[in-house]
Simulated scan of single mutants.
Amino acid sequence: MSDGLFIRSTLDLARQEGLDRLDAQMLLLHALGRSPHDRAWLIAHDGDQMPTEAAARWEQLQRRRQAGEPVAYLLGEKEFGGLTLNVDARVLVPRPDTEVLVEWALELLPTPGTGAPRLLDLGTGSGAIALTVAARRPDAQVTATDASADALAVAEANARRLGLPVRFAHGAWLAAVPGECFHVIASNPPYIAEGDPHLAALTHEPVSALTAGPDGLDDIRQIVAQAPASLPPGGWLLLEHGHDQAAAVRELLAARGFEAISSRRDLADIARCTGGLWPGAR
């Protein structure tokens, strides 16, 4: 056992040192070998003394968190769309806001019994979008792409562990699936402008999955330009984007010939996703 270190005092010290209360609880549970979501156990055992090995693990986790490393990387997992995804520094940490994009995609897929709906997740990262759709719509044929072989390795491992039949393809945007057609194309591409001050808080995540040119729209421009070749008449393109980019993305879609263009808001009531219907003429 450690020298007089108790669970309650461990959490108190972490709070005094500026560690977020929920982060500290999750990391301490992880160090103790328990589920990071079992906070009721912490309350029931706050007078327990910390085992020596757990205390050592906790100290390491606390230092890494205070250095800015995401909690999801320290835990090795992140909840998304009802699934537990394994994540590490090869992929972005899935954000709850992206679930807005997933729900929209699910709404737009053809109804069950009308043939297998086809969905493409461009830039899949950990596989969050593709795997959630595959879990919710077992009848769908889901394909996921990424230009990063490392990211695909993470997504493929998640698919195997979860037993979800997603097909993966390596390549940049639509070039990864030449000649194929999908009812819905969904993407959470890089959309932060190079030099954006917010990047300072994201140094532990892969920069290639975050930034896209001087205004953050370079990758979205590519996807909008390429997507019609892979959409049937009535197919949809859905894009996640930055908090101030909805109008610009709507303009890009309109200029390319998309119709029924609209945006949807995230949990903070910010226009976070924009999509449009492809009318047919290429």
Rank of each mutant, 00 (worst) to 15 (best):
L164H: 03
L164W: 11
P165W: 15
P165V: 11
P165F: 10
V166L: 10
V166M: 05
V166Q: 09
V166P: 12
R167G: 07
R167C: 12
R167N: 13
F168T: 01
F168C: 13
A169K: 10
A169M: 09
A169G: 11
H170A: 15
H170V: 00
H170N: 06
G171D: 02
G171W: 02
A172S: 15
A172N: 15
A172R: 15
W173R: 07
W173E: 01
W173K: 03
L174Q: 12
L174V: 03
L174P: 00
L174F: 09
L174Y: 07
L174A: 10
L174M: 15
A175Q: 14
A175L: 05
A175P: 00
A175M: 01
A176P: 01
A176T: 08
A176V: 08
A176H: 04
A176G: 12
A176Y: 02
V177N: 08
V177S: 10
V177Y: 06
V177P: 05
V177Q: 10
P178A: 02
P178K: 10
P178W: 11
P178L: 06
P178G: 05
P178F: 08
P178E: 03
G179A: 11
G179K: 06
G179W: 08
E180V: 06
E180F: 01
E180N: 02
E180D: 09
C181S: 11
C181M: 07
C181Y: 01
F182M: 09
F182K: 04
F182P: 05
H183F: 01
H183N: 14
H183K: 00
H183E: 14
H183Q: 14
H183R: 01
H183A: 07
H183M: 01
V184I: 11
V184P: 15
V184H: 13
V184G: 05
V184N: 07
V184D: 04
V184L: 11
V184W: 11
V184R: 06
V184Y: 07
V184A: 09
I185R: 09
I185A: 08
I185G: 10
I185F: 07
I185Q: 07
I185C: 10
A186K: 09
A186W: 14
A186T: 13
A186I: 11
S187E: 10
S187M: 05
S187T: 15
N188C: 13
N188G: 06
N188W: 03
P189R: 13
P189S: 12
P189Q: 12
P189E: 13
P189N: 11
P190Q: 09
P190I: 09
P190C: 10
P190H: 11
P190K: 10
Y191V: 04
Y191F: 13
I192W: 01
I192E: 00
I192L: 13
A193D: 00
A193T: 02
A193E: 00
A193R: 14
A193H: 01
E194M: 02
E194T: 15
G195V: 04
G195S: 05
G195F: 07
D196Q: 04
D196T: 12
D196R: 05
P197C: 05
P197G: 07
P197M: 02
P197S: 06
P197T: 02
P197K: 03
H198F: 00
H198R: 09
H198I: 12
H198D: 02
L199F: 04
L199A: 13
L199Q: 08
L199G: 14
L199K: 08
L199H: 10
L199P: 04
A200N: 06
A200S: 13
A200T: 12
A201F: 03
A201R: 13
L202Y: 09
L202S: 09
L202E: 08
L202A: 04
